[in-house]
Design a protein around this nucleic acid. Structure first.
Length: 826
RNA sequence: GCCGAGAUGGCGGAAUUGGUAGACGCGCUAGCCUCAGGAGCUAGUGGGCUUUUAGCCUGUGAGGGUUCGAAUCCCUCUCUCGGCACCA
């Protein structure tokens, strides 16, 4: 009756110290156990840390602990995605070096995560800003360069005016920088790219293999890659004889092309029109369209605009002259930046043609129609039969499309092709706090890679970070000036750094052997641990980090340097934590920090709430009184456990055959709870219902009152040995403390996940519902597997059922054994 | 506009895949205990009705359908959230 008070502070501290002293979570690749590599997306260690961040790690930890108890050899590491712009901004504000700010945040985060009792193998901690890590990021860059997958090219790029750097396409959301939110500008710059488009087809096809990924994420990647099948068709510019290639998914409509549309950025505009009689009229218009922001131009109901160039193209299929326009809806970064416009069969082209009075010529007739291509009110985009198409008239349009391409191909003027939305990954950044790109430039500008033995190329510490005047690295003469290892002559270093998404595109491999010096990863360790069995993180990286990592894995796999070409076997995307309806964020001011909760209720309560409030994939609204409910539950657990511990038998030994019905029912509950908790965790991490099952179990234990028979006391002991282990993935500290009090001579980890006895689960009697015409009229407690006759007889004996059956004719009886009996009467 | 997910008590959410809707928790109500309680314990809690130890009706966004039986399957619609979006 005198349970010790639940002093969560002491308990949590004691066990965290114990875990640390015994290296309880150190992963072991020499184990003959089955491996399980569990990874949460490593964080950017920013200045704040709130329960929204924490949920991610608690979900992962609950799984890690469960898998450990199940007997897996678990790798559960943690590290820091530590390069990035906020560190530079903080450095400007506080006049300290970004490294100082970053290291301060890392130690803060580490303390917090340790305080939460997350079972990381801290001996594998890594940080992308440390030379022993980014040396290998640089090595990766050189590997890709060597394999032709990294290249430098001039062209139009996205420029973030706030971050003062270029961005990859994936980092531009609705025409704005993904972090800064500023509208991006187009600039023409020479930049470094990774040739991710070489992998477009594999990145797309292999999504089908990723059955352990949410469909949502796979769909988003498919959309992003944006594969479309079609044809490349060569038009010719009448005046110059130059080719004008276009991509189309509808070669069947070629005879209906009545104008060409060039993107305003198309290089042909300068080449062809500058200096021509049309220049004065056309060039200012083209310039004006270029200046429209991407946002304004891609808005769905943006006004279509264009200008006739004065030039004509020749249709390769019939020699027809077609006017070439510049149109704001033509996109430079899709296809060839030019398109053949068929107003009769494309809504956008139709709208444009109507506005500028360009002819609309139908070439597809709806099936079973006698419509002759008269006046049209909208584009006809469905399938049909060719008309106005010379020798192809009368053919079904899809078939005609193939025939037209085949005809063009014979003359070298067209071919079947596949086009992707995906662009190459622009990886250089004009920032200081990133991995330096290990390239130098000879005096003539030729790039030379830094030899591998000279890596890492480290940051100079003596820089002025002011946020003004561009990249501080470029202003540091000591850094910039160097001697070329190739020619021995003075040369200049590349001063751009890498996109931080490169750092994070391979860190999961480094975790296999984080201290390895002989290469970016020890291949033996990688073979043991890879792929990541379960990856846990936010949906916001669906096309960023998750696409880049897949690409890098494939590139490394092709180089024989990664054992897998898909890094993440299973992906789980957890929901956000909201408060007052908004995502927790320092700027909104609605954050709850783990400290507040931990000091008031303890870590186990904070963890329990995070897991219990909602299924982990759903968003969850922070709720103070629900947190308190979790705290009350742990107190109930604590009191019930200690009260019963006094009366329980010293061992859980009993004769199953000697148990009476009531005792068998109690035993059934214990074993059934083990089964339910395991099933719920295994089935999409339903921690919320797993915890609910534990609550029901505890509620039943609370109702147990002395005196107990000796069999009952042994069954209680079994229940008390079960409960801490079931709770330990969720509330590990209180679980360890209770387990310790049992004095079993084993640690909780050694004892492992409790086993349930299949035969203990079998129900003896079961509630059978009696329905009359589908409405519940009675409930029967029947022996399991009773016959229909027995149940029907018992049902008729129930007064309420009998009342509804009285005087009626039974038309039919539906009996589902152990569940329901339904009398259909009239 | 296209694609995807969803809509269940006052609230968060359950429901063994077609078989008692509302598990578990929060909140609320009443009682016990207490100097006190923002502690603990007990009972109740979808809505409505009646002759209230019990029974009846109704109820899972709206409407229709299939079925002995539908939160679950089918059709139509409404709304919410997420993604994509002038991609030729």
């Amino acid at each position: 009756m005198n349970a010790p008070p639940y002093r969560f502070n002491e308990i949590e501290k004691r066990w965290q110290t114990r875990w640390e002293e015994t290296n309880a979570f150190q992963a072991d690749e020499d184990s003959d156990k089955q491996k399980f590599y569990l990874l949460e997306m490593f964080p950017y260690p920013s200045g704040d840390l709130h329960m929204g961040h924490v949920r991610n790690y608690i979900i992962g930890d609950a799984l890690a602990r469960y898998k450990t108890l199940q007997g897996y050899s678990v790798l559960h590491p943690m590290g820091w995605d530590a390069f990035g712009l906020p560190a530079e901004n903080a450095a400007i504000e506080r006049k300290i070096h970004p490294a100082e700010w970053t290291d301060g945040n890392i130690s803060y985060w580490k303390t917090q995560l340790k305080q939460l009792g997350v079972s990381y193998d801290w001996s594998r901690e890594l940080s992308t800003n440390r030379p022993d890590y980014y040396k290998w990021t640089q090595w990766l860059f050189l590997l890709l360069y060597e394999r032709g997958l990294a290249y430098q090219q001039g062209g139009l790029v996205n420029w973030d005016p706030v971050e003062e750097t270029v961005l990859a396409n994936e980092q531009v959301i609705d025409g704005r920088g993904w972090k800064s939110g500023a509208p991006v500008e187009k600039r023409r710059l020479n930049q470094w790219y990774f040739r991710i488009t070489d992998y477009a087809e594999r990145l797309l096809n292999d999504l089908d293999r990723l059955d352990g990924w949410p469909d949502r994420v796979r769909t988003m990647q498919r959309n992003w890659i944006g594969r479309s099948e079609g044809a490349e068709i060569q038009f010719q510019i009448e005046e110059t004889g130059e080719p004008l290639p276009v991509f189309t998914t509808r070669p069947d409509t070629l005879y209906g092309a009545t104008f060409m549309a060039l993107a305003p950025e198309h290089t042909l505009i300068e080449e062809m029109i500058e200096g021509s009689p049309h220049a004065a009229r056309v060039m200012p218009e083209a310039q004006r369209m270029r200046n429209q922001t991407r946002q304004a131009r891609s808005d769905a109901d943006a006004e279509k605009e264009g200008v006739f160039t004065g030039f004509y193209a020749v249709n390769p299929v019939n020699g027809e002259r077609i006017p070439i326009w510049i149109a704001n809806y033509a996109l430079m970064d899709y296809g060839s930046g030019a398109l053949m416009a068929v107003p009769a069969h494309d809504e956008r082209d139709f709208e444009f043609a109507r506005k500028y009075d360009i002819p609309v010529r139908p070439v597809i007739q709806p099936p079973d129609s006698t419509w002759d291509g008269g006046e049209m009110n909208e584009a006809y985009v469905e399938d049909g039969v060719q008309i106005n198409s010379g020798p192809f008239n009368g053919m079904p349009n899809r078939q005609a499309g193939k025939a037209i391409v085949a005809r063009l191909q014979e003359r070298g003027l067209g071919k079947q092709t596949v086009n992707y939305k995906l662009r190459d990954w622009l990886v250089s950044r004009q920032r200081y706090w990133g991995t330096p790109i290990p390239m130098i430039y000879e005096q003539d500008g030729t790039p030379t890679p830094v030899p591998v033995e000279n890596l890492p190329v480290t940051h100079p510490r003596d820089v002025q970070i002011t946020g003004k005047g561009g990249n501080p690295l470029a202003q540091n003469e000591n850094f910039v000036n160097c001697i070329s290892p190739r020619t021995g002559k003075p040369a200049r270093r590349e001063t751009d750094t890498m996109d931080t998404f490169i750092d994070s595109s391979w860190y999961y491999l480094r975790f296999c052997s984080p201290r390895f010096n002989g290469g970016f990863v020890d291949q033996d360790a990688a073979r043991y641990w890879m792929a990541v069995d379960q990856y846990v993180g936010g949906i916001e990286h669906a096309v960023l980090h998750l696409l880049y990592s897949r690409f890098i894995s494939k590139a490394l796999f092709d180089a024989g340097l990664s054992p897998v070409d898909e890094p993440f076997e299973n992906l789980f995307t957890q929901g956000m934590v909201t408060k007052d309806g908004a995502k927790m964020s320092k700027s909104i001011g609605n954050i709850v920090t783990p400290d507040e909760i931990v000091s008031k209720y303890g870590v186990d309560t904070a963890r329990l709430f995070s897991l219990f409030a909602a299924p982990p994939e759903m968003d969850v609204e922070w709720n103070d009184s629900a947190v308190e409910g979790c705290y009350r539950f742990l107190n109930r657990v604590w009191r019930a456990f200690h009260r019963l511990l006094e009366d329980a038998a010293p061992t859980a030994e009993y004769e199953v055959e000697a148990l009476d019905g009531d005792e068998r029912a109690f035993r059934r509950l214990t074993h059934r709870t083990i089964q339910r908790v395991a099933d719920d965790i295994s089935d999409r991490f339903k921690f919320n219902t797993a915890i609910a099952a534990c609550m029901e179990f505890v509620n039943a234990l609370q109702n147990e009152t002395a005196p107990f028979s000796s069999a009952r006391a042994a069954l209680l002991r079994e229940a008390l040995e079960t409960l801490p282990r079931l709770l330990s993935p969720f509330a590990p500290h209180i679980a360890e403390e209770m387990w310790d009090a049992l004095n079993t001579g084993k640690t909780l980890q050694e004892a492992g996940w409790p086993k349930y006895d299949e035969s203990a689960l079998a129900e003896e009697t079961i509630l059978v519902v009696v329905q009359v015409n589908g409405k519940v009229r009675a409930q029967l407690n029947m022996p399991v597997d009773s016959t229909e006759e027995a149940v029907a007889a018992a049902a008729k004996g129930e007064p309420n059922a009998a009342r509804h059956l009285d005087g009626k004719t039974v038309r039919r009886v539906i009996y589902i054994p152990n569940r329901i009996i339904n009398f259909v009467v009239s």
